[in-house]
């Protein structure tokens, strides 16, 4: 697959910002993204690549930090969106939810525009980030409660 040649580099979010948004969106439910995106007046756009599902081979490392090996595949869906202003966005997510890939591609395109980067962050990504971090914190707290506290039995008068 070749890079899309007429891609316009928007003046909005950098790759770091885009990756962060992609990560948050990939961890969120499609219904939640759909609902939040309704608060944004979406500009005209099209899908350069309609959503499709396929496989990505997951790779591990021997010993956790050595040479790579193929672990097994996972289902992945992807889509490519383009705004009429030219920005091209990519949506990639684990699973077979093609609507999610479509929404992610659209968000990625919007984040690249100066006009929408703030809106998408404030109205879509920020609430999802908060929800994700709450889920993570709750799970971390439940996990922490199962940590073993060793104590030593003291014998005699020392």
């Amino acid at each position: 697959m070749t890079a899309i040649s007429d891609e316009k580099r928007g003046s909005g979010g950098s790759i770091v910002v885009r990756k962060d948004a992609m990560r948050i969106l990939a961890h969120s439910a499609t219904e939640d993204v759909t609902k939040l995106l309704q608060a944004v007046a979406l500009p005209n756009h099209e899908f350069l690549r309609e959503p499709e599902s396929g496989l990505v081979m997951m790779r591990g490392r021997i010993g956790g930090d050595g040479r790579a090996f193929n672990l097994g595949e996972a289902t992945v869906s992807r889509a490519v969106a383009r705004l009429m202003s030219g920005e091209v966005g990519f949506g990639y997510t684990l699973g077979r939810d093609q609507d999610k890939a479509r929404l992610m591609a659209l968000c990625d395109a919007l984040i690249q525009t100066e006009q929408f980067v703030g809106d998408i962050e404030a109205r879509v990504i920020a609430p999802l980030r908060t929800a994700l971090s709450q889920r993570r914190s709750r799970q971390a707290a439940e996990t922490a409660a199962t940590k073993v506290d060793f104590y030593t039995m003291v014998r005699g008068e020392g």
């Binding site: 697959m1 070749t2 890079a3 899309i4 790759i15 990756k19 992609m22 990560r23 990939a26 961890h27 690549r49 990505v56 997951m58 996972a74 992945v76 992807r78 490519v80 990519f90 990639y92 997510t93 684990l94 699973g95």
Partner: peptide
């Protein structure tokens, strides 16, 4: 999980397993 997406030109996050 991250996947190097040639069309995007960088490694995109896919979620976690």
């Amino acid at each position: 999980v991250e996947f190097f997406a040639e069309d995007a030109g960088f490694a995109v996050p896919l979620g976690s397993i």
